[in-house]
Computed example of a mutant assay.
Amino acid sequence: MAGSSLAGLVSPEAQALYDRLRERGTLRLGVDVDGDAPETLELMAAGVAFRGGEGDALLRPVGTAAALRLLVDREHADLVNRQARLAAGWRGLVARLGFHGVRAGPVAGDGVEVIDSMPEAAAKAVELYAAGTRLVRAAFTVTFETEPTAHRLLLPPPAALAAGAEYQGLYDVAYTGVPWGRRLMADSAAAGESVRMRKDVPTKMILVDDATALVAVAAAGVPALLVTATDLLRVLADWFDLMWRDSVRPEGDDVPLTAAQRRVVRQLATGMTDEQIAHESGVSVRTVRRHIAVAMRALGAETRFAAGVAAARKGWL
């Protein structure tokens, strides 16, 4: 299907070029397609298109199944690298902040203030969340204590959104497992926050306009740190952005999948056809397609292969 054959694993421009290649078989470089265009270079760098013909004047595609395998392998390698950077970044951050255990207490220094009470930390969170003028990044995890705020939820102020501020809310996937967690994400999204999820969010944090951050360093909720040091803010911003890249939107009916539906999703991620899945699972093709429809709705995926990729990122598999 045009526009979806590579399951969103390349840019829209590269996807469109690949679809043209699959329709035509080959394209002439410099005539049918710009050999130095970003989308051309992207496909060649990913190994899903290559030069051929006399003088390497033609651009040829690899088959869709092979292309998907190459792209998924690349995505997996990139994910492993990002996870390693995330872990190293968190260890480095904790070490630089001087935190060595629950209640041992981080040491204050230039650009780092210790907040040692939950009410004060909650009040500061409300203050910071409402103060954004450009970009507010917020990370949430259910494993850390939360002090109820006066308004119960941290919601983007309409005035800030109207002025062009962007709010990014990153939630641990565990929020989908409880009604209040799903409601919190739904209310935040309705208020204008860009809501994403990932399997593991190691702490709570609010980072406002790359100028101030509030970070919880212990599961008990305190002590929390108010950070204004420029070098530490850069680490926090990079750390959040890496997690944001490795996240998914909580679209569709986010319901648990049965064991049979999970198996079908895993098979989808390998590029198997409905008939192959049915044969391997010992069920009818109609049953396979029903499982696929449920999984796609639950994952907010537009294609079957994208459902498999999204399920893996959510930690469902």
Rank of each mutant, 00 (worst) to 15 (best):
I115L: 15
D210V: 01
V265C: 03
T203M: 11
A7D: 05
E39F: 11
R182Q: 14
V80T: 15
R51D: 07
L97E: 02
L242C: 10
M243P: 01
L93F: 15
V195K: 11
E113C: 02
A138Q: 13
V294E: 11
V72M: 06
L21Y: 05
G92R: 12
T273H: 05
R286Q: 11
R74C: 00
G25H: 07
A125I: 06
L59A: 10
Y171W: 13
A220E: 14
E251V: 02
R85S: 12
R289I: 07
S281L: 14
L6M: 12
P156E: 07
L299P: 00
P61E: 09
P38F: 06
G271L: 00
G315P: 03
E127H: 09
D56N: 15
E166S: 13
L161I: 04
R266K: 11
A165V: 08
L93I: 12
E145A: 15
F99I: 14
G308I: 02
R152I: 09
F140I: 02
R183S: 12
V48T: 10
V288I: 15
A46G: 01
A174C: 08
R182V: 09
A45Q: 07
V102H: 10
P61G: 04
D209V: 10
L21E: 09
V178G: 00
D209T: 10
L58P: 03
V178S: 04
D254A: 14
V235H: 04
L17D: 05
R60S: 05
G282E: 10
V222A: 09
A7E: 06
M185C: 01
T146K: 13
A278V: 09
V264G: 04
V235C: 01
T230G: 06
A49D: 08
V114Q: 06
V33S: 05
A46S: 12
T149E: 04
D231T: 06
A7S: 14
P223F: 11
H151L: 14
G55C: 12
A278H: 04
P148K: 11
L17F: 12
A46D: 10
T176W: 05
L317T: 11
V112A: 06
G109S: 12
T149W: 00
W316C: 02
A311I: 08
D56R: 15
T258E: 04
R24G: 02
G30K: 12
Q276M: 05
A122L: 03
E39Q: 15
L27G: 07
A306N: 01
A311W: 03
A122P: 00
V265P: 08
V114H: 05
H100Y: 07
E275F: 05
A211K: 13
A88L: 02
A311M: 09
T176S: 13
R262W: 03
A189Y: 00
E302Y: 01
R183C: 01
R198N: 14
L268Q: 05
R249S: 13
R22P: 00
T141P: 03
